[in-house]
């Protein structure tokens, strides 16, 4: 798996994702600076990492989408190449139109760093194939703008086409209000594009891919990509 981790000014989970891809998954992994106009030759997977691109001073992801590298990322996606956005990366993907919807300020207006319960909704995607459908897992979130919003039509399509990847759930495994940390519509934590090659999520699988960090629930997210 040849992986390119895009570094925007203000990215701060770039090194974390790199660590997991390179040292846990043992993939060939490179950083790609946002001012580049092309991806390294032979790139299979592009990851947009978490962080605060451009400080999130405008709207999360709203400036990063104009970075030079983003046209190469779009072309990669157009060719059917895999693109993943985690946290700020997810925000950049929605801002750039590669994924539907938008991520707004959390319901309680505060940054939240906490483990959350998730239910795997679609276990057939490029990032969820190693999970079982309906499986309950835990992953950490760390964001201020993670409240997923989309129009009714979009939501209907996402739900109808099985493009909701993960949903926030409570201790009983139910997608309740209580289990919803940020107010996301339909408790959506991650979605897939219509072609199935672009995925975005707010939780951080790279933070739970090693035993020493207390959970390996995120490991299978990466394993799915090579399954």
């Amino acid at each position: 798996m040849k992986t390119a981790v895009v570094v925007f000014p203000g990215s701060n989970c770039d090194r974390d994702i790199y660590h997991v891809c390179r040292h846990v998954m043992r993939w060939s992994t490179e950083f790609v600076w946002h001012k580049e106009t092309t991806l390294p030759a032979g790139t299979d997977l592009v990851i947009l990492p978490g962080g605060f691109s451009y400080g999130d001073y405008l709207r999360s992801g709203a400036i990063a989408r104009f970075s030079a590298i983003m046209s190469a990322v779009k072309s990669h996606a157009d060719r059917g190449g895999a693109v993943i956005g985690v946290c700020n990366g997810f925000q950049i993907l929605t801002e750039s139109g590669l994924l539907p919807g938008a991520l707004c300020r959390n319901r309680d207006l505060k940054f939240i760093c906490a483990p959350v319960g998730l239910r795997v909704e679609n276990a057939g995607s490029i990032v969820t194939r190693a999970y079982r459908a309906g499986e309950r897992i835990r992953m950490p979130i760390a964001h201020a703008d993670g409240c997923y919003q989309a129009g009714e039509e979009t939501l209907k399509r996402l739900e109808g086409e099985g493009r909701v990847l993960f949903r926030y759930v409570d201790e009983a495994g139910e997608p309740s209000e209580r289990g919803n940390p940020n107010g996301s519509l339909h408790n959506i934590a991650g979605v897939l594009n219509d072609r199935g090659n672009v995925a975005g999520l707010m939780p951080h699988p790279e933070r739970c891919a090693e035993t020493i960090l207390g959970s390996t629930d995120g490991r299978r997210f990466f394993e799915s990509l090579v399954k």
Partner: peptide
């Protein structure tokens, strides 16, 4: 308090 701090970034927090 600490829920508002990102205490896990850098994947080092044991």
């Amino acid at each position: 308090v600490w829920r508002q701090y990102d205490h896990q970034v850098m994947v080092g927090t044991v």
